[in-house]
Amino acid sequence: MSSITISAIRPRTSILDKSLSKGKGEVSLSCFALLFSELVQYCQNRVYTVPELQNKLAEIGAEVGHRITDLLVVREKGGKREIKLLNVLLFIKSTVWKSLFGREADKLEHANDDERTYYIIEKESLVNKFVSVPKDKGSLNCASFVAGIVEAVLCDCGFPAKVTAHWHKGTTYMVKFDDAVVARDKQLEDR
């Protein structure tokens, strides 16, 4: 007769169960640059104009943003989402930026002339660091990819906004919230 051995079954853990803040979370800069340049070339081969290319990069960035929202809200905030406008912007400036780029964004500013508009400023954007723009595509800003990520995170957190990338003080992400978001935030402050 053969004997049967019973061993303890270990619960399976997936990569999603591991903390973002523990372990080596760094990616080789040269590897990232190569991968991102391939992404830009992939998009460039499927469009005809610079605005179309930026929109395509923003669409792909939004897909990343949707995934990172759930990951960060569950892991870093225990499943609790922000309900105040300034808090969600600070979450993006710090937590989201750190998880993507290893550091916080340089600045967060509120527009003087429009209560719906905020700016996230990055002096040296990693996605533009190794990009040399040809003369025929002079206005191209590959940071549209990151703008797509930020827009998706905001929308997933319940703060619908349009986010665009601009060349100003390095790279500036202009975040323009829907009117309903600002009105809701004012109601929260009045309570």
Score class of each variant (00 low, 15 high):
81 R>Y: 11
118 Y>I: 02
82 E>I: 02
83 I>C: 08
120 I>A: 01
31 C>F: 07
107 K>A: 12
43 C>W: 00
38 E>V: 10
109 E>S: 11
36 F>G: 03
37 S>K: 12
101 F>W: 13
121 I>L: 14
53 L>H: 01
79 G>K: 06
71 L>M: 07
116 R>F: 03
89 L>Q: 05
75 R>K: 14
64 V>R: 06
54 Q>F: 00
97 W>G: 00
67 R>G: 15
98 K>M: 13
43 C>T: 06
86 L>E: 15
83 I>T: 15
60 I>K: 03
32 F>K: 04
58 A>H: 01
54 Q>C: 07
43 C>N: 07
40 V>W: 04
102 G>W: 06
40 V>P: 06
98 K>H: 11
33 A>G: 06
60 I>E: 13
58 A>Y: 01
48 Y>P: 00
67 R>F: 04
89 L>Y: 05
27 V>R: 11
41 Q>D: 15
91 F>K: 00
110 H>E: 14
30 S>Q: 13
28 S>P: 03
64 V>D: 13
82 E>Q: 13
90 L>T: 10
96 V>P: 01
55 N>H: 09
70 D>Y: 09
108 L>Q: 10
92 I>Q: 07
120 I>Y: 02
28 S>E: 15
93 K>Y: 03
106 D>S: 12
48 Y>D: 15
72 L>G: 02
38 E>G: 11
40 V>G: 07
125 S>F: 04
46 R>H: 15
32 F>A: 09
34 L>V: 11
111 A>N: 12
97 W>R: 08
58 A>R: 03
89 L>P: 00
110 H>A: 11
75 R>C: 02
126 L>F: 04
110 H>K: 14
39 L>S: 05
124 E>L: 12
104 E>P: 01
101 F>K: 05
78 G>W: 07
94 S>A: 13
28 S>I: 03
108 L>F: 07
44 Q>W: 08
90 L>E: 15
55 N>Q: 13
